[in-house]
């Protein structure tokens, strides 16, 4: 048992030792390479660093330093292909190097500033409110009195990915959880005031093409168009009947999801502005959403006979349209160096 413990301790110590020594080796290697470079011994720098630069000896920061020394060395040895390769590698590791460079030789600065370094994929989160005003397509009301659909407020939150096809054009996908409502008022339903409210929850998946315009180093404005699919997950209707003659109020609630179109294609147009921060971008946008089909599944409109006869209420054919206001935050998760 004792021997086992001793041998385990020995193995751990050996492992720690080798890790410490590999760091010393790496530092020593870089310092030696840097010294050789400063002495103009470029061939020796390349011989020393190139074989180990892709290994596990160097950590991320040391790898960056190694790429930089190699890029400088290959530039002075007039090897354009290798210079290009190592410059790209160093820019991939430190994407803001053009903005925050070391004091490099002028020709190196000129070369490195020719590369375009930009985010390729963003990931983000967003949340906000919405305002919907349904559009009546066909009325099925049993009453002919004045009636109206009121503007309702809702909310949405979720996440998104954005792929930059160019520096100013992107294709993105949003996955949003939506809460919205429908509010239908009938002023005179045989001596009653009738108010129908439907609370809807859904998942909205969209694909949006966006064009960005840079106003300055910090601010971008953007506009986008897209298509999406709204998947209804719950829908609850509540009707309140208030007597016009007395204080009597009756109400009932029903689950309406089985009579609704669960999947609705949507179109959307988006306008927004975003602000660059040290890490990612904060955006404010306004999205106009138009549902292409009606909320009610016409084949199942009369399925809930009890509710219809008790309350004398039949759901109309309406299409939802409205505005979503969102606050978003996104960070680049992949960069491209060209």
């Amino acid at each position: 048992m004792k021997i086992k413990i001793k041998s385990s301790v020995f193995i751990v110590l050996m492992f720690l030792n080798s890790a410490v020594f590999s760091q010393i080796d790496a530092k020593d290697l870089l310092f030696r390479s840097n010294k050789l470079y400063n002495q103009g011994k470029i061939e020796e720098v390349i011989k020393l660093l190139e074989p180990v630069v892709h290994g596990k000896l160097l950590n991320r920061e040391q790898t960056f330093d190694a790429y930089r020394i190699l890029a400088l060395s290959f530039m002075y040895s007039l090897n354009a292909e290798k210079t290009d390769y190592f410059m790209k590698e160093m820019l991939k590791l430190r994407v803001d190097y053009q903005k925050y460079p070391n004091i490099d030789p002028t020709e190196f600065t000129k070369l490195i500033n020719k590369y375009v370094v930009r985010p390729q994929i963003y990931a983000g989160i967003c949340f906000g409110g919405s305002s919907y005003l349904p559009q009546l397509m066909k009325s099925y009301s049993v009453y002919t009195s004045n009636q109206s659909y009121e503007r309702t407020s809702g909310y949405q939150y979720g996440g998104f990915f954005e792929y930059r096809l160019k520096s100013n054009v992107s294709l993105g996908t949003d996955v949003l959880i939506n809460g919205s409502a429908i509010n239908h008022k009938i002023n005179d339903a045989n001596g009653w005031e009738q108010e129908y409210k439907e609370i809807r929850k859904s998942a909205l998946v969209t694909v949006v093409g966006t064009n960005y315009r840079k106003l300055n180093d910090v601010v971008n404005v953007y506009c986008g168009v897209g298509l999406g699919m709204n998947v209804l997950t719950s829908s609850e209707g509540n009707i309140i009947l208030a007597s016009n003659q007395s204080d009597l109020v009756l109400q009932s609630t029903t689950n309406t999801i089985s009579e609704r179109n669960k999947i609705s294609p949507v179109g959307l147009v988006r306008l927004g502005v975003d602000f660059q921060t040290n890490r990612g971008k904060i955006g404010f946008d306004l999205t106009y959403v138009d549902y292409f089909n009606t909320t009610v599944n016409s084949e199942k409109r009369y399925n809930n006979a009890d509710f219809i006869f008790t309350n004398q209420y039949v759901s109309d054919d309406i299409k939802l349209r409205g505005m979503m206001f969102s606050l978003s935050y996104k960070v680049p998760i992949k960069w491209v160096v060209k």
């Binding site: 840097n34 920061e61 040391q62 960056f64 330093d65 903005k99 925050y100 070391n102």
Partner: peptide
């Protein structure tokens, strides 16, 4: 200017 700067032990 660059709050996320990671110093280099080499430079």
């Amino acid at each position: 200017l660059n709050p996320t700067y990671q110093p280099s032990s080499l430079n």
